[in-house]
């Protein structure tokens, strides 16, 4: 009976094809061979299914993983990404590997050759670190920051319509009055950040109740360009974005208990075309799932 059902489900076989490779990932051989071995089955158009991958019900899960994997990161269409996005994807990938979130355990269990060793991680870290260049700010960067500063009217009336992200979360102007719970120098992408927490967050920090964070917690993370001088003094340049995480395990149950939003440039342009943009947020924060999806280690004042 079980055998018959097993044979029967083999006919439920949604297609999984390998579309053409339009612009393959380029990197030194040592790096590329690790990436090909560990990532390409799900993150490229060169998926190599073994016989056991093609057996339902495993096949259904495999097909899903490949579909999701390609949507998030596809090394076969790599050249269509702007250089800054390529770098960001690589740093994110290395961080996913360091955190043990990638490659997926269920994948390496069946494909042990795809496991990433400590030595592989060292090679990948060294490679992405070699891509991070943060030279002193040039005239263009300085001018962009100055222009933005001049046009910034603090205390001036907010725009008539409050910007709203596609998932319904509105920009919260009050973040500026919240407390800073940490700062970050991001040498991977040349930005610097302040992470603000609202009163609920600050109380949770004081009470050491931060995993999970209580409902009502709100974080705002602000990113600026780094403006470095020749002596290595760095100050904030152009404002890039403000990102929010709003905790409500009921209201935002579908997105890991958090409401996510990002507003870019001083015009506060909402990020994302549809409410599905949150899958991107969650994917990046996934390695922190045992830490309530929060990267920041807060400090108390």
């Amino acid at each position: 009976m079980l055998g018959a059902a097993f044979v029967g489900i083999q006919f439920v076989h949604p297609p999984l094809e390998n579309p053409p490779v339009t612009g393959d990932f380029q990197a030194p051989v040592a790096v590329k061979s690790i990436v090909q071995r560990a990532c390409y089955d799900c993150h490229s158009n060169q998926t190599n299914l073994r016989w056991f991958d093609k057996v339902a019900p495993v096949y259904w899960q495999v097909a899903d993983h490949v579909k999701d994997g390609r949507a998030g990161l596809n090394f076969s269409t790599w050249q269509s990404l702007p250089p800054a996005d390529q770098k960001a994807k690589l740093w994110e990938a290395v961080n996913q590997i360091i955190a043990g979130a990638m490659p997926l355990n269920e994948y390496t269990l069946a494909h042990p050759a795809a496991k990433v060793s400590a030595q592989d991680v060292a090679v990948l870290k060294q490679y992405v670190a070699s891509l991070a260049k943060n030279p002193p700010a040039d005239t263009a960067k300085l001018n962009a920051a100055d222009r933005q500063y001049r046009h910034w009217q603090p205390g001036a009336a907010q725009p008539a319509a409050v910007p709203v992200a596609p998932n319904g979360i509105a920009y919260l102007p009050d973040y500026k009055n919240w407390q800073a719970i940490s700062t970050t120098e991001r040498f991977d992408n040349g930005t610097m950040r302040v992470i603000f927490g609202n009163a609920v967050a600050v109380k949770a920090i004081r009470d050491k109740h931060i995993n999970p964070w209580p409902n009502g917690t709100a974080f705002a993370k602000v990113a600026w360009d780094q403006l470095a001088d020749a002596q290595g003094n760095v100050r904030p340049g152009a404002f890039k974005q403000v990102e929010y995480m709003l905790k409500d395990d009921q209201k935002y149950a579908a997105t890991k208990g958090w409401g996510w939003a990002r507003f870019k440039t001083p015009k506060l342009v909402p990020y994302g075309k549809t409410a599905l943009f949150t899958t991107e947020c969650i994917r990046c924060h996934q390695p922190m799932k045992n830490n309530d999806f929060v990267f920041t280690q807060p400090l108390s004042h």
Partner: peptide, 17 residues
Amino acid sequence: LLALSACSQNKVPAGQL
């Protein structure tokens, strides 16, 4: 195999100040 896939690594320190 599917059951095992529910396990996951946890290298990230959780709930730390």
